[in-house]
């Protein structure tokens, strides 16, 4: 395959891989648009939330905090805590990409959500910029487009549709992960360890929102480094 058709196929691959994210993002973004409207946020500001902040859980949290009268400082600090997990995900992704795509890094980093990261990092071949940017474009377009759509037509949807949609992204995470845990019992052990730590820390309720996950990721990845000898890397 020549270079250009390889790039085209990578781009198409990214679009196809973005479809499950789109299915998951669209209804959640619509719920955000709808909720932003009922919180008294203007259409343009709702759009800006999704287009600039682009981080699901923290956007819902912000609406909640705005509704109860929290100040900007509190909301911004809470957002930093909730979204800091992406620092770890970007560090993991940065270790995998080639130096020659560095000039696309501002875009790749901006679009590095939980879902995009999961798909890129469990892809067996090295991620190309065409793949990553196409995938991120799909995710971003559905998040921003869904927000605007939800702002205008959200209340027309029967509530049961919105109520059942939160399962979509979890189903996607599971579908991404299952082939990996099937291949490697150690990967499965790490997934369960991290989930158990996250559950335990949530039960203890001692850390600020978002940090249960970060501590769970740090501890379980560190244990993984020492538990696995080099001959049984989980990614091989």
């Amino acid at each position: 395959m020549d270079n250009q058709s390889y790039k085209d196929s990578q781009f198409r691959n990214g679009i196809t891989s973005g479809i499950p994210i789109m299915i998951g993002y669209l209804p959640i973004a619509m719920a955000f648009g709808m909720l932003a409207k009922t919180t008294g946020i203007s259409m343009l500001q709702s759009f800006m939330f999704s287009a600039c902040v682009y981080a699901g859980a923290s956007q819902f949290m912000a609406l909640n905090m705005i509704a109860v009268g929290a100040g900007p400082g509190e909301i911004i600090l809470a957002t930093l805590l909730v979204n800091f997990r992406h620092f770890l995900m970007s560090a993991s992704l940065a270790a995998r990409i080639k130096a020659d795509i560095k000039k696309y890094v501002p875009f790749i980093a901006f679009g590095n959500t939980d879902e995009v990261f999961s798909i890129i990092s469990l892809k067996s071949e090295e991620p190309t910029k065409e793949f990553m940017l196409a995938l991120e474009l799909m995710a971003y377009a559905s998040w921003v487009g869904g927000t605007v759509l939800g702002y205008f037509v959200g209340e027309l949807l029967p509530p049961v549709i919105g109520d059942s949609m939160p399962i979509a992204l979890y189903a996607m995470f599971i579908a991404i992960l299952t082939p990996e845990v099937k291949k490697s019992i150690k990967a499965a052990a790490l997934v369960l360890l991290s989930g158990a730590l996250n559950t335990f820390l949530g039960y203890m309720n001692a850390l600020p929102s978002g940090w249960n996950m970060i501590v769970a990721i740090l501890i379980s990845s560190t244990i993984g480094v020492y538990m696995f000898r080099k001959e049984d890397e989980v990614d091989e």
């Binding site: 997990r85 770890l88 995900m89 560090a91 993991s92 940065a94 270790a95 995998r96 990409i97 080639k98 130096a99 939980d114 990261f117 999961s118 990092s121 469990l122 399962i167 979890y170 995470f173 599971i174 991404i176 992960l177 990996e180 990967a187 790490l190 997934v191 369960l192 360890l193 991290s194 989930g195 158990a196 730590l197 996250n198 559950t199 949530g202 249960n212 996950m213 769970a216 990721i217 379980s220 990845s221 560190t222 993984g224 480094v225 696995f228 080099k230 890397e233 989980v234 990614d235």
Partner: peptide, 30 residues
């Protein structure tokens, strides 16, 4: 972080993050 010349342990730590992040994203939220 740059992919070249990372200490081995750091590199392995970063490679495990997709698994542990997904574990914490799925459990218990799902």
């Amino acid at each position: 972080v740059s992919s070249s010349k990372l200490p081995r342990k750091v590199s392995r730590f970063l490679k495990l993050i997709p698994y542990t992040a997904l574990g914490a994203l799925i459990i218990p939220g799902a």
